[in-house]
Design a protein around this nucleic acid. Structure first.
Lengths: 275, 275
DNA sequence: CGAATCATTGATTAGACTCAACTGAGGTGG
DNA sequence: CCACCTCAGTTGAGTCTAATCAATGATTCG
């Protein structure tokens, strides 16, 4: 993976998944061999810029299922990008209540809420064996001052997280239980699709209780709804294995309300590895 | 207001409300005459930096009550800081449902959700006659590359917005109606206090329906809860005039759960103009 | 001053929660 | 390899919170 030719300097990788250079012109930069480059922080950087950012993006870490990446209250030092696997983040009330704030998969950036207090604001736990990319934040800020594209990407990602949170607030504040679960399923479906996986068959990485926590519902309610959706021929459920049989009906149920996906740029485009 | 001496270059205004220079060393820079400087984007900039940022921070705009600052779907060009007055932002579902995403007062920055798509993601409406500071975003990004303090402040503010959203998600997903309203009142009380106003007597700038929309409740529920809180001697309500008579009980009700305030730096400190 | 908007309060209902019992899958160790 | 245990998931019965529907009172504003 390190013997490929360096490309010329103006070569750019685009957010739409295409690349100005030939498929074999890849540098020995971690991002170039990471399948999620086009969804991640370095979108749009030239190769020489990627090389400069190399030290930033070099450090990886592996997490076993259930392992915690960071804990609320501990010092914030870095942002993390998911290379593979998935994580949940949870916010904690002072009285001990805990709520899932998000599920994060390939190419998504987490830890953003730690910047403002230099302390992590939530817990991040791996839902399966997971590998992440560690980006020390002071280094990232320094680089962002030199690379406007990187700077703008960071701002976009943070802004996108704010939009995502707003759509969750809309879900929690105004939707009925079945609308919430339908929206959740449609959102997962879309995100798997964007990443090149089946949009109709996937395995949930979280328990009913965790889904409920994210959606502001109790686990029994989630379970009942899965059963009802199956009865109504919208999905087929077998434990955590989900097969969507009527995505249109699910979209209708969700009020065509999209939970904003992980990266704004692509939400309304038809970007996908399938095209 | 323009005849005061320029201070020396290393003079810095701090987030805790103090200033390294004498009270009279203020430049003819809008931020220096804005009471909210210590809560706003330019916290910590030296005076010479403030001067550089001057063009960024010079443009103001006035809004009448009910006027819209921006609308979801329209092009995003700038961030806005509240100079006085207040606004609500609302997110829209595709089916027309609308939900209040936040109430914004003095010193708070809005428009952050527009960065990722270059299009505003929500509506912003003045709740009273309001003045705001317009900060063109491309200019802000350029300046942020030159002024690390400004860059970091921007990141902090965005991160803080994410934390605020997370605490709203916790509220909507796990609290009962009375806990939500108590949390809302305590949050308002704290924010007024931080800005030098009474923490126990204030006038709501929004209708019961708007409060309900923010809290995921119907207006009748909000109204009933106000009445019950009054019956229980926690508050005195007269239309929109609120007098808090037992803030401790309200805090207890809210599970001591703070809705994250507008600027992370100050949340857990005892910063306030009263000290 | 009158119209419109906002707010309060009551009666009833529906949707989600709680409590509880039971089933099934996965992992461990004898 | 199977028995056992635990944790996850399903389903049912009853309860309760907040929504809905409805009528009336209070403010605000042109």
């Amino acid at each position: 993976m390190s013997h490929l030719n360096a490309s010329n300097d103006t070569t750019t990788c685009y957010g739409d998944g295409t690349c100005a250079d030939s498929p074999f012109l890849q540098r020995d930069v971690q991002c170039n061999i990471c399948g999620m480059r086009r969804l991640c922080l370095p979108v749009g950087l030239t190769n020489s810029e990627l090389v400069r950012a190399g030290t930033l993006l070099d450090t990886h870490a592996k997490l076993r299922k259930g392992e915690m990446l960071y804990r609320a209250g501990t010092p914030f030092t870095a942002l993390y990008a998911v290379r593979f696997g998935s994580l949940k983040t949870t916010v904690l009330a002072e009285d001990g209540r805990e709520q899932v704030a998000g599920y994060h998969m390939l190419g998504e950036l987490i830890g953003l809420d730690g910047i403002c207090t230099k302390t992590h604001g939530c817990n991040a736990v791996a839902l399966e064996d997971t590998e992440i990319c560690v980006m020390p934040f002071d280094m990232l800020e320094r680089l962002a001052r030199e690379l406007p594209t990187l700077q703008h990407n960071l701002h976009q990602i943070m802004s996108n997280e704010i939009m995502r949170d707003h759509s969750v607030m809309l879900l929690l504040g105004s939707m009925r239980a079945e609308e919430r679960l339908a929206t959740f399923l449609v959102n997962l479906s879309d995100r798997y699709w964007q990443r090149g996986y089946s949009s109709t068959e996937f395995v949930l990485r979280m328990t009913r209780e965790e889904i409920g926590s994210y959606l502001g519902l109790k686990l029994e309610t989630v379970s009942r709804l899965f059963s009802r959706f199956q009865e109504d021929q919208l999905i087929h459920v077998q434990g955590r294995a989900i097969k969507i049989t009527n995505i249109d009906a699910l979209r209708t149920l969700s009020g065509h309300q999209q939970l904003t996906a992980s990266r704004g740029k692509y939400n309304n485009s038809h970007f996908s590895p399938h095209e």
